[in-house]
């Protein structure tokens, strides 16, 4: 795929505008739609080439749905998705092949994301075959050997089956598969959450090295703030289907402006037991995304919520350079 002239400077690699994804709820005898789970309700961000944007939030806040929509595994309810300035949100699945070549996804569970009846060669070469990138079998095996080396596995495992590997090895195979069509954007949907801590560190280092070597852009979806702090350039904090705060990594961790971000950060355990930090304890539960609160979605649990928070939904506006917050009382 050739990039349009001057696209490097004029467009971000991936741009998402006002993504909305509702899952309809059907009920009654006739299966009519009786409601909708508002999984994602107006999310916008952009990812530049070679950059890592992390998406953090509690479970159920819609971060995986965003990832799946960006990878076009789910159809968008509304919103715009652009790759190099070109809109791809309305394209039918059959026209997405050039897009799929440039974007791939690594899932959370390395045990269910590899077909148990395919060997490593077939798994990793799947994008090569479906995009017709490397024609011959011998060349494909050579390419798979290269990819295995890239992700730190030995090339002689090529004929083994997925059940013969550990979780970390499987995740490396998933990464090799995602890389095989030479994409420039990868969505990592909780890609390290299912792994042991030591293996997590290996996979994170692998991702960072690949990013440095290949200039990959990564959308890193996670709930682990320590991991996010380690590898992101920018961080977006999601709550109930919306972005609460999006900022450069250092800015966000040093001076969070949204009360939800503050609460999240205060929950991260510190390695030094002598440091006593002030915990922000949130009351209550996450409201249901079927019937979200009026105004600011976070107001029901917010320590500084006011009357205005119930009436007007705060927009995501720039608070300091490189830091945007959706709150009436940021800071």
């Amino acid at each position: 795929m050739t990039k349009p002239e001057g696209s490097e400077t004029s467009h971000p690699l991936v741009e998402l505008r006002d993504l909305v994804k509702y899952f309809p709820i059907h009920g009654g005898l006739l299966g009519r739609q009786v409601g909708a789970v508002k999984a994602v309700d107006g999310v916008s961000f952009e990812v530049n080439a070679g950059e890592t944007l992390s998406l953090v939030g509690e479970s159920g806040c819609g971060k995986s749905t965003v990832g799946r929509c960006v990878a076009r595994l789910l159809d968008l309810t509304s919103g715009e998705l652009r790759l190099d300035g070109e809109r791809i949100d309305g394209l039918p699945q059959s026209n997405l092949k050039p897009f799929r070549k440039r974007l791939n996804i690594v899932f959370q569970d390395p045990f269910s994301s590899l077909n148990p009846r395919m060997n490593v060669e077939a798994l990793i070469s799947e994008p090569l075959r479906s995009h017709g990138i490397v024609p011959g079998r011998a060349e494909r095996r050579a390419r798979v050997a290269q990819l295995l080396d890239t992700v730190g596995l030995s090339a002689d495992i090529m004929d083994r089956m997925p059940h013969q590997f550990s979780g970390g090895q499987r995740q490396r195979i998933c990464i090799a598969r995602a890389l095989s069509s030479e994409p420039d954007f990868i969505v990592c949907d909780e890609a390290v959450s299912a792994l042991d801590v030591s293996v997590q560190a290996q996979i994170i280092n692998l991702l960072m090295r690949l990013q440095a070597d290949l200039g990959l852009a990564i959308l890193f979806i996670s709930h682990d703030l320590a991991v996010v702090e380690h590898l992101s350039d920018r961080v977006a904090v999601m709550y109930l289907g919306r972005i609460m705060e999006i900022a450069d990594r250092d800015q966000l961790f040093a001076a969070p402006a949204h009360p939800y971000t503050k609460a999240l950060l205060s929950a991260v355990p510190l390695p030094d037991p002598s440091v006593r930090q002030k915990r922000v304890i949130l009351k209550g539960e996450v409201p249901s995304p079927i019937d979200p609160p009026s105004g600011c979605p976070f107001r029901t649990r917010c320590p500084i919520a006011n009357d205005i928070c119930a009436q007007i939904r705060p927009e995501l506006v720039e608070h300091t350079p490189g830091q945007s917050v959706a709150c009436h009382f940021p800071g």
């Binding site: 092949k97 799929r100 899932f107 269910s112 994301s113 590899l114 799947e126 479906s130 995009h131 598969r177």
Partner: peptide
């Protein structure tokens, strides 16, 4: 299953 989703993402018809 996730591996079918992964196959979609890999561009398999």
């Amino acid at each position: 299953l996730t591996y079918v989703e992964a196959a979609v993402a890999c561009g398999t018809s």
